[in-house]
Design a protein around this nucleic acid. Structure first.
Lengths: 153, 153
DNA sequence: GCTTGAATGTTCAGGTATGAACGATTTCGT
DNA sequence: ACGAAATCGTTCATACCTGAACATTCAAGC
């Protein structure tokens, strides 16, 4: 038998010395939970969160977007978008098209299959958003919104 | 010039139809911000967040922990811990030791260098925690804590 | 005592992310 | 008009993470 462990959740992390209320780590764990939830529902339509985010971006833009623009919106490195679009292209959800006005630029365009899946993903995500919002009264949601704004320090 | 883009932040995501207050996405963005902040400060002592978390676990346990126990606490796959410990071992921060009572088990043990770095990391993290808490009044922290508890749906 | 089943850590393949280096192109200052 | 600087996407090395498959070891039941 294992005589030292504590295999469950470890309590020490959230117990800041003599303090009441939300901790940094409770916050991060809640976010983890939400991300997991999103991953679960997207999985039902065969998408990962990063892939869905790219499709959503393209769907909402209603026109092909340059990879650089995608990287900016996703707040990630350009090289990440290169690979993500590689995989999306391999899945047949996206096409790379040349930008006629800038020969450096490459744009990503939704294929019909991509557009369909983007929509199905959006439906799944909407369900999670409703779940999330249903957990709070309108007043609480407003409260939470205000608290979230404080976090940029 | 690029005639279609919107290279800044895209506003469409947070604008749920006819709704006030916090959205799912505002929440996730706030969490991203915090994670970035943590990554920044840990970087100053040469640690990543995942590496720090393992060191913290070992530091707090005050004895070698089996890789399985680490995986449970970090809530991650066992194979992840295997690789993380590989890297920590390569960095000289951790040692693999045999468990005398179970020949399957492997335990991770802090080296002196690992213990030192764990402590330096903890100092950095404490600073972020204080930053976070300073952003709220005690009442708000309590409020936030209550709201976070609602998130498990 | 064996056999079966569970648990442990590793390996492998693949997805997601970063930053540095690169070649191709565009832009800008002069 | 031309050279320097900025921008674009890709490639590469690396980190982090997962799930499936695997060999080894342990625990239980008969």
């Amino acid at each position: 038998m294992n005589d030292f462990v504590g295999t469950e959740r470890d309590p020490s992390r959230d117990a800041a010395p003599s303090e009441v209320g939300a901790t940094l780590f409770a916050f991060l764990e809640a976010a983890n939970h939400l991300r997991t939830r999103i991953t679960e529902v997207l999985c039902r339509v065969g998408l990962s969160y990063p892939k869905y985010e790219v499709l959503r971006q393209l769907r909402e833009a209603k026109e092909p977007l340059s990879l650089g623009a995608l990287a900016e919106c996703q707040q990630c490195a350009r090289s990440n978008i290169t690979q993500l679009v590689d995989r999306l292209e391999a899945d047949g959800l996206v096409r790379r098209v040349q930008d006629p006005s800038d020969r450096r630029a490459v744009r990503a365009e939704l294929t019909p299959a991509g557009a369909t899946l983007a929509e199905q993903g959006a439906i799944q995500i909407a369900a999670v958003r409703e779940e999330f919002e249903a957990a709070f009264t309108p007043a609480e949601r407003k409260q939470l919104g205000a608290l979230l704004d404080r976090i940029r320090f």
